[in-house]
């Protein structure tokens, strides 16, 4: 067995090179997450979203100031190879559809799609027609609601209503449960919180619980602070200092 060899002509066009790398046949512009390009043939430029000439494109397709610094636009002609930490990479087509996906797992998308922030922190929603590329740790599984999934194993969902949180009842019961509610400590199985999906649609799961360790969640929380009033801020400050002093012990 030898390593497959590719040239610009023999690289697949908008398809996987192997399960871990995707080749985009670029002719125009694609949005891509920063740092996921591994190689390219041809004339391709990478621009930050703040670049002047991209204003119209960004205004039309990218509606998430929170994630703008993580994204770039690849512009030009050629073959562009994308990969992410050796994760499985897959492409999906949307046809006048919508799909919500974990922000760290979305690698690239065509400008035919519009990107918006989901109500669920750390997730992004794509709306419209076009192709996008996403990474998952292990192959993707498609399941249908009703289903409860582990938050870390959830990749995204399409067509169905946004999930709600589900907590096991025993989590809140008894002395230990009360202690958990106040201090957030105590022995748990680690599986008392799930996302609950109902309705028609498809839920995408990855086959592990490894998620990109980044500060997306934190930035999301920070972004929501703007919606909190003065009294709310004081309460937040209180609970944060309470947690901090509990951590120090």
């Amino acid at each position: 067995m030898s390593t497959p060899t590719f040239t610009a002509a023999t690289l697949p066009s908008n398809d996987n090179v192997n399960p871990y790398a995707f080749s985009v046949d670029l002719n125009g512009r694609w949005f891509a997450q920063k740092g996921k390009m591994i190689a390219y043939y041809g004339r391709i430029r990478f621009e930050a979203l703040s670049a002047g000439p991209l204003d119209a494109l960004v205004a039309a397709s990218f509606h998430s100031p929170l994630y703008a610094q993580d994204w770039i636009v690849a512009e030009g002609q050629g073959k562009l190879l994308l990969a992410d930490r050796g994760f499985d990479v897959n492409s999906f087509d949307l046809d006048e559809g919508n799909l919500t996906i974990r922000a760290g797992n979305l690698l690239a998308f065509e400008p035919g799609l519009e990107l918006k922030q989901s109500i669920i922190p750390g997730f992004l929603t794509l709306i419209g027609t076009g192709r996008f590329v996403a990474a998952s740790n292990g192959p993707v599984h498609f399941v249908e609601p009703p289903i409860r999934v582990d938050p870390q194993a959830l990749l995204g969902w399409a067509d169905c209503p946004s999930p709600c949180h589900h907590y096991d009842h025993s989590y809140m019961r008894g002395v230990l449960g009360a202690a958990r509610m106040v201090f957030g400590v105590g022995g748990t199985s680690g599986e008392e919180h799930q996302f609950d999906f109902t309705g028609e649609g498809t839920v995408l799961m990855q086959s592990s619980e490894a998620v990109m360790s980044d500060d997306v969640m934190l930035r999301d929380l920070e972004g929501q602070i703007g919606m909190v009033g003065t009294s709310g801020l004081q309460r937040l400050q209180q609970s944060i200092s309470q947690r901090l002093s509990a951590e120090r012990q």
Partner: peptide, 11 residues
């Protein structure tokens, strides 16, 4: 390599 290597030809 970390993940299967891809050989890319240069001419």
């Amino acid at each position: 390599s970390d993940g299967p290597a891809i050989a890319l030809e240069v001419s």
